[in-house]
Design a protein around this nucleic acid. Structure first.
Length: 198
DNA sequence: CAGCAGATTGACT
DNA sequence: GTCAATCTGCTGC
């Protein structure tokens, strides 16, 4: 197993740089019978209080989003549409509610267990190719909200950054309501990887 | 307190 | 292509 990313990685101030750097790294979650893990192949950056697409836009703070104001290096698991859980990584210093949404991974360890979690084996690439799908596949739930990423429960292992030429860049998904901020190129993915979302 | 929309997905026309 | 599922939180009465 590779080494965990240090806490300093998450506390960088440029959330966009962190979102790009996370591509190719390996997300691991402890589960019954061992770890479930996968390469991160798609991310989105949410740039704190100045980003209209971010839950903490304008300094909003609720029970749900309070964890975003913690120092970087913890998880933020958000329940979307009352059904789907979206896994975020909180970045930057305390009081700066920046986050990186993990949108898709490529399974490495425990793919069979992920299929059991998903209970919907319709096509191999449907397993983890979306933020709600990957959370379900990894068994991520409310109990995973606010956990430290420097732990044995859930962590991200280091790996070489992708070459610039292998990274696709574009606007984020599902944030059309955010006005001008919806067009920002804050979504990153590994080109030609079949596990990215649609 | 009611109504509504949302960082999604899967089933159906 | 459309639409429902179902919880959080914002807006307005």
């Amino acid at each position: 197993m590779r080494q965990q990313l240090p806490i300093a990685f998450y506390r960088q101030q440029d959330v966009v740089a962190v979102a790009k750097a996370l591509l190719g790294k390996v997300l691991s979650v402890k589960a019954k019978g061992g770890y479930l893990s996968g390469r991160i192949v798609e991310t989105e950056a949410y740039n704190g209080i100045q980003d209209a697409a971010c839950h903490a836009y304008g300094g909003r703070k609720t029970n749900r989003t309070a964890i975003m104001y913690a120092p970087g290096g913890v998880t933020y698991v958000y329940l979307c549409y009352g059904i789907h859980r979206l896994l975020n990584v909180i970045t930057n210093q305390a009081g700066h509610p920046d986050a990186v949404l993990i949108r898709a991974i490529e399974p490495l360890e425990g793919e069979t267990a992920m299929q059991v979690n998903r209970n919907h084996p319709k096509g191999r690439y449907a397993l983890t190719s979306g933020p709600g799908k990957l959370s379900q596949a990894l068994g991520i739930g409310p109990a995973h909200n606010g956990l430290s990423l420097v732990s044995t429960e859930i962590f991200i292992a280091d790996a070489p950054c992708l070459p610039e030429a292998a990274i696709g860049v574009g606007p984020r998904i599902g944030v059309a309501y955010a006005g001008a901020d919806a067009a920002l190129p804050y979504r990153f993915w590994e080109k030609d990887n079949p596990w990215i979302s649609r």
